[in-house]
């Protein structure tokens, strides 16, 4: 079981991620506010962060940078509804493990999460 943080400005998307990954036995913490998510990641153990790129105040890439500052070992999967070469390159350079395009299939999401968490050890 892993501690997973999900951040998306659309609450339904975070709920969905929570449902899918909870079924796989993970403990999912969902957020729609960037600040709250960053604070949580600093104060708690987070194995994997699933971050949307387009958020309310900041970009998902900026959030990833801050979280990686506090927890460099944390894994990250970036999700976006509008993939661009620039955001993909930036996210990967900051240490993101995957860059997925919405709408991601349930099976694909589960598979990517397992793969990233497996690479932990």
């Amino acid at each position: 079981m892993a501690e997973i943080l999900a951040l998306d400005d659309v609450q339904d998307a975070t709920i969905l991620i929570g449902k899918i990954l909870a079924k796989k036995g993970h403990n999912v913490h969902t957020f729609t506010e960037e600040d709250e998510a960053i604070v949580f990641a600093k104060e708690n153990k987070v194995d994997l962060a699933i971050l949307d790129i387009k958020l309310k105040k900041m970009s998902g890439v900026d959030v990833l940078a801050k979280m990686k500052e506090a927890t460099p070992a944390m894994h990250a999967i970036m999700l976006t509804g509008y993939p661009t070469v620039e955001t993909a390159r930036e996210a990967i350079s900051l240490g993101a493990d995957e860059y997925c395009v919405k709408p991601i299939d349930r099976d694909e999401l589960e598979e990517k999460v397992e793969k990233v968490l497996a690479s932990k050890g």
């Binding site: 400005d9 659309v10 998307a13 969905l16 976006t80 395009v101 919405k102 709408p103 991601i104």
Partner: peptide
Amino acid sequence: AGTVAHEINTPLFAALGTAQI
């Protein structure tokens, strides 16, 4: 088109994932 697709993709993700569950 990119903006529209992006705006559609997130709710679409929520709807599709929920339907699959």
